[in-house]
Design a protein around this nucleic acid. Sequence first.
RNA 1: GGAGCGGUAGUUCAGCUGGUUAGAAUACGGCCCUGUCAAGGCCGGGGUCGCGGGUUCGAGUCCCGUCCGCUCCGCCA
Length: 593
Amino acid sequence: MRSHYCGQLNELLIDHSVTLCGWVHRRRDHGGVIFVDLRDRDGIVQIVFDPKQPEAFTLAERLRNEYVLQIQGQIRRRPPGTENSDLPTGQVEVVANQIDILNPAEPPPFQIDEVNINEEVRLRYRYLDLRRPTMLARFQLRAKVTSLLRTFLNEQGFLDIETPMLTKATPEGARDYLVPSRTHPGKFFALPQSPQLFKQLLMMAGMDRYYQIVRCFRDEDLRADRQPEFTQLDIEMSFIDETILKNIMESMIRMLFTEVLQVELPNPFPSLTYQEALLRYGSDKPDLRVPLELTEVSDLMTAVDFKVFAQPANDPQGRVAALCVPHGGKLSRKQIDDYTLFVNHYGAKGLAYIKVNDITAGREGLQSPILKFLPDPVINAVLERTQANSGSLIFFGADKAKIVNEALGALRLKIGDDLDLTQPGWKPLWVIDYPMFEWDDKEKRWFSLHHPFTAPKVQNIAALETDPIHCQSRAYDMVLNGSEIGGGSIRIHRTEMQAAVFRILGIGEAEAQEKFGFLLEALKYGCPPHGGIAFGLDRLVMLMAGAHSIRDVIAFPKTQTANCLLTAAPSTITTEQLRELHIRVHTTETVSS
RNA sequence: GGAGCGGUAGUUCAGCUGGUUAGAAUACGGCCCUGUCAAGGCCGGGGUCGCGGGUUCGAGUCCCGUCCGCUCCGCCA
């Protein structure tokens, strides 16, 4: 139907006859001459309608925005002075000889060139939203990313293998999306939270290197970076250790940034232990672009006559930490109060601070409601450790370590943003040496920090069982600009170890057999040492595209309550469908078709 | 489950301490116009102020409830 794309046209094609197809982006009717900006996936070009071509001209008078056209015409250089340097095709224009209205269009509910549209409207008319050049660019970027990843992995000997979407519900981790079985009354499939077990089975099958760009499903509450269905780049390798895997994955991500963004990432990526990340940044996914760090001051506060500090300082689970903000002294009382409210969200009961007016003036140069509780040596040590200067503001968090970390970690990012301290660019890193288990006080049992198939650093099962809290795992996360973009581990490849981990997690023999019997059995038949990683493709593309939500890099995303505003899914189904599935619905609303 | 912000014309928004007929821009319709590119000029149509209740002589505005969207906590790797 066409000879060229609109965006391809340039001076080299002058005098050529072309046939174009596309949408009316805009029409400018001067009465005697009509201009139409024709848009296709490749770009925009100006079409001119002259009354000397009365047939085409008459039709052009009827054109409206978003009409779909086929146009046959002649490319010519624009008359001097009428070139448009804002348009890549702006040196030329197409004089229309013939026009075919392939489809008229009603006025769209919003203008395609409008930037600031309510997301509700955009999602309701997503197919129109996607016509906008910024959206198109994001999906072109996403396609380039997946293409480069596939090429890289193919060249590295990875096999792209599909795994089931209809699979088995898992007890640990996120809530499953369930699919009722028609042929097995009362039984359900689960949609995969990730292909974790299948990729391990593929290693046991001798596939050696596997990858898949695969949809995963988790029925949990949504966020800007969380959708109920999302895409992972899932990877698994045999006969490797973490060094080999991390090297290959780093070079893959470096390649991606070079090819797509012309950005050179560090080689190698820096590495932080989980513990160090929490100590210095209060987070296991630190944003290294923010040049602020937490300072440990617990040891200074054990003997102070200030219960708010002394108690957590003496509690093995507690922590007292400082966040020193250079030039933070200019913050108003109101802003400090707002930050106090902000840390309240994370369970912090307050936010103590010291304003450093004059670092040389000792106690007199400081300003703080808590000053009277702190003896000189403590104050001096705090000032020295935080490297405070005149004009600095030092915030304090004192509570259970978890609360201090989350509160000051979040405050660090907020202040970095508010005071414009966040540096531009890209800061990738690995976070390693995760604890193997985490104690849940409510349920009184251990949980896997990563997942139950992650190998511990110790080989000795007895050591694992006697001291779970100090046991580290062979897990690793890749973090970029404060987002966890990938995570994985070396897996357990021996039956005894897997059984021991299940025991610690309180998964009984019978339950282990029922839920993971196939895996335990497979381990017996010659399982190679193996490990892998999974990248959150949506998050990665979001970051690379400079978008603020993964919804902007997913063609048809869901809302925060997991609705699709375009199709109105989920919806009720007929009683006939329910009957076939052996399901009865208990709601106040009646089920309709 | 919880906190915050928002919902007024097709769209983006304004609408103050409650007060006459709810405005603007843009889009849309008509007319004029031969070099614009966010074309321009003139004229016109367009509103269940998310929904339900309450307070009041009077509610877009105040109160209660509810629905929807967004951000966050919990939840989730």
